[in-house]
């Protein structure tokens, strides 16, 4: 279980980016984190991962997010960064996907099997030996997701997993997410994807929680969404 109690965070003094957030995420929940640009979604994820200092209390399975526990906590969390260029650092896709399993003590043989399985699951087997700098933006996105799935984390944190993906790959990612029993926190501006993958939604606005609850109830609430610089998901809007 993940618990935030009165969590605040600022990058620079006086510029509060997260403001007194409190919420709980139960095990195997899928939670969509939505909000306008600059609302603080990526920051919230970074705070949870112990990448930024914060005030208040954050716990993951009753372990407080602090220096002492950070190793144990990070073992439970897998994070897909918003910018895949910053996620991939090994020369080839294959080596990158294998990086985490090897670090977590898996034998090379097992790690290779795991890597092959994840790449196949995402339809990336052809990319296996390609160089990271020679693949397209969307391919890099898929590969970045593979690097995190290969970790087999308890909690999956995804920062805009479907940005830059074509409809086919987007669907693969949605299906993959739905097939995983893990706890998931997904940030996205693709509200239809959030609707497809999440039962709960937290709506952030200028670092505060504007609403949280059942995904359908929030995502069908036009006034609430528009008051927070969002729009109805395409499947609910009557435009076409």
């Amino acid at each position: 279980m993940i618990r935030f109690e009165h969590v605040s965070c600022e990058y620079e003094k006086g510029q509060t980016v997260l403001n007194d957030l409190s919420f709980e995420i139960q095990n195997s929940d899928s939670v969509g984190l939505i909000g306008a640009n600059g609302a603080g979604k990526s920051t919230l994820m970074k705070v949870l991962l112990g990448l930024l200092p914060y005030q208040g209390l954050i716990t993951v399975d009753d372990l407080e997010v602090n220096k002492q526990n950070i190793k144990e906590i990070r073992r439970k969390l897998g994070f897909v960064l918003q910018n895949s260029d910053n996620q991939m650092f090994m020369p080839t896709v294959y080596e990158d996907v294998m990086f985490a399993p090897l670090n977590y003590g898996m034998s090379r043989e097992k790690a290779e099997k795991r890597t092959d399985a994840v790449l196949a699951q995402l339809g990336l087997s052809d990319l296996k030996h390609r160089h990271n700098h020679k693949i397209s933006g969307g391919e890099k996105r898929m590969a970045a997701i593979a690097t995190v799935l290969a970790m087999e984390p308890d909690v999956l944190l995804m920062d805009e997993p479907t940005s830059a993906l074509d409809p086919y790959n987007r669907r693969i990612v949605i299906n993959t997410i739905n097939a995983l029993p893990n706890t998931k926190i997904i940030t996205s501006h693709d509200l239809d994807m959030i609707l497809d993958t999440c039962q709960k939604v937290i709506l952030l606005s200028e670092g505060r929680i504007a609403a949280q609850g059942n995904a359908k109830e929030i995502l069908i609430n036009r006034e609430l969404l528009e008051a927070n610089r969002m729009e109805l998901p395409l499947c609910f809007s009557q435009k076409y």
Binding site: L51, R74, L77, D85, F89, A100, N103, Y104, M151
Partner: peptide
Amino acid sequence: DRAEELYSSMQLRGFCGEFQYAD
């Protein structure tokens, strides 16, 4: 910035200061 984020990404995937070089 990028190097820092790359390093975070390595840490988040279990890197503790030693690369697991190819056997």
